[in-house]
């Protein structure tokens, strides 16, 4: 059942993407692209409507300064279900999507009806995208049918909202598990109805477990997406989340996407970064290329 994955060679290949030299024009372009792919995220118990509104303002216009051509907005704002309405209102008409984690995020250790209801409410509140967690307990105990069935049901409840399936790879531990879970998640999502390009994503992590996204884990997931595309012609999206903090790291990921899946996937409708602190580092680099000077951290708004 398991497709074998060789960790040593995956790591070697993942490392090779980081040795690409991205300078001048391609750096500028790559950073803008990365910025447009960010799901600006806040997932804390202490999140307030005020904080979410600030985040939304930042999402629409990441930097207040003048730069030509103007910087893109980020792809989405990602919040807990209780704050979806706040985000929806703040982002109206901006083209920035509202993503909501659901299904008892981050652990998923709740009865299925509670998790499904969680999704329903988030969708009702206006979420464009749902970031669900898989049942890792069931997966690790070998109850793959249970994991798949739950994913299928969640996708059905999502309706037209896009679905991102979080594998929580830090808990799956091995790359073979990551590969198997990716295959299983995509198949299960497809089981609930046809998928159009970018309607379903697989996502590495909640950001609450260490390790979160790594290059080798993401590479294995990209390879599964590549295979599924070859078999069906359907483009599944990818979202590494957690642990991507610097502009340089973001560029390494883009190189990996480009060389594994091709340019088609280099768009926010098929690739996202789940991150919060990444935004300001990308901005710092962009502004430096523009003005020739490094800015201080306080030159960029928090959020």
């Amino acid at each position: 059942m398991h497709t074998p994955v060789d960790t040593v060679m995956v790591e070697q290949r993942a490392k090779s993407f980081a040795s690409r030299s991205i300078k001048t024009e391609s750096k500028q372009q790559g950073l803008r692209l990365a910025l447009s792919m960010i799901d600006l995220t806040t997932l804390e118990g202490k999140d307030s409507p005020e904080k979410v509104r600030a985040l939304c303002t930042k999402a629409i216009q990441p930097w207040e300064g003048e730069i030509d051509p103007p910087l893109p907005s980020v792809a989405a704002v990602c919040v807990y279900p209780s704050l979806v309405q706040v985000a929806k209102r703040a982002l109206e008409g901006s083209g920035v999507a509202v993503a909501s984690v659901a299904t008892g995020f981050p652990s998923g250790q709740y009865p299925l009806d509670v998790r499904l209801n969680d999704v329903k409410e988030a969708v009702c509140a206006g979420a464009d995208e749902i970031d669900m967690v898989i049942n890792r307990g069931a997966f690790l105990s070998g109850e793959f049918d249970v994991v798949a069935e739950e994913i299928t049901q969640v996708r059905t409840v999502c309706g037209t909202a896009h679905l991102k399936i979080i594998l929580e790879t830090g808990e799956l531990e091995t790359l073979e598990n990551v590969r198997l879970a990716s295959e299983l998640a995509i198949q299960a999502a497809a089981h609930s109805g046809s998928i159009s390009d970018g309607e379903v994503f697989i996502k590495t992590s909640t950001g609450k477990v260490n390790p979160a996204a790594t290059m080798p884990v993401t590479l294995v997931m990209l390879e599964v997406i590549r295979e599924y595309y070859k078999e069906t012609g359907i483009k599944i999206g990818m979202k590494p989340a957690g642990g991507i903090k610097t502009a340089k790291q973001a560029l390494h990921y883009l190189v990996m996407v480009k060389e594994t899946l091709g340019d088609d996937w280099l768009t926010k409708s098929l690739f996202r970064f789940g991150a919060s602190s990444l935004t300001n580092d990308v901005l710092r680099q962009l502004v430096r290329q523009h003005t020739g000077r490094y800015t201080a951290t306080y030159d960029f708004s928090e959020a």
């Binding site: 692209l33 901006s94 409708s269």
Partner: peptide, 10 residues
């Protein structure tokens, strides 16, 4: 000045 532009390719 900013809009959710659809950037792609690289």
């Amino acid at each position: 000045t900013t809009k959710a532009q659809e950037l792609s390719g690289w």
